[in-house]
């Protein structure tokens, strides 16, 4: 399964990853190698098999509708790179 440079650039864009010119060739080669390895699965007969999303055969547990959290903005924003007036600042979002 060989990927083209364009394929890699497309998924890199979906993943919001900049791939430097110095990285791209190696990335294309290694991803092609990995996808070649996983392509083995194509041969497996899975007709009528239920996909397994989870190892646990349990149902979702529900939480009572109670407010258990209080304001810790100051503490939580200590990890934030750029905060103004309690808002997380980012470059202009164009709509």
């Amino acid at each position: 399964m060989a990927l083209s440079r364009q394929d890699v650039e497309h998924i890199a864009d979906l993943a919001r990853l900049e791939i430097g010119d110095d990285e791209i060739a190696d990335m294309v080669a290694k991803l092609s190698q990995i996808l070649g390895m996983v392509a083995e699965l194509g041969a497996a007969d899975t007709s009528g098999v239920e996909p397994m999303a989870h190892p646990l055969e349990m149902a979702q547990r529900l939480r009572p509708d109670e407010v258990t959290e209080s304001d810790h903005r100051e503490l939580y924003q200590q990890n934030a790179p750029d905060v103004v007036d309690g808002l997380y600042r980012v470059p202009k979002v164009i709509e």
Binding site: R73, Y76, G86, L87
Partner: peptide, 25 residues
């Protein structure tokens, strides 16, 4: 006030996990 009702889960902090609200269901 901005971000005063944003818990670790709402902020998507590393390591946090969701648990579903029964009333919403």
């Amino acid at each position: 006030e901005p971000n005063t009702q944003a818990s670790l889960v709402d902020l998507g902090y590393p390591g946090v996990l969701p648990v579903l609200n029964a009333e919403a269901v």
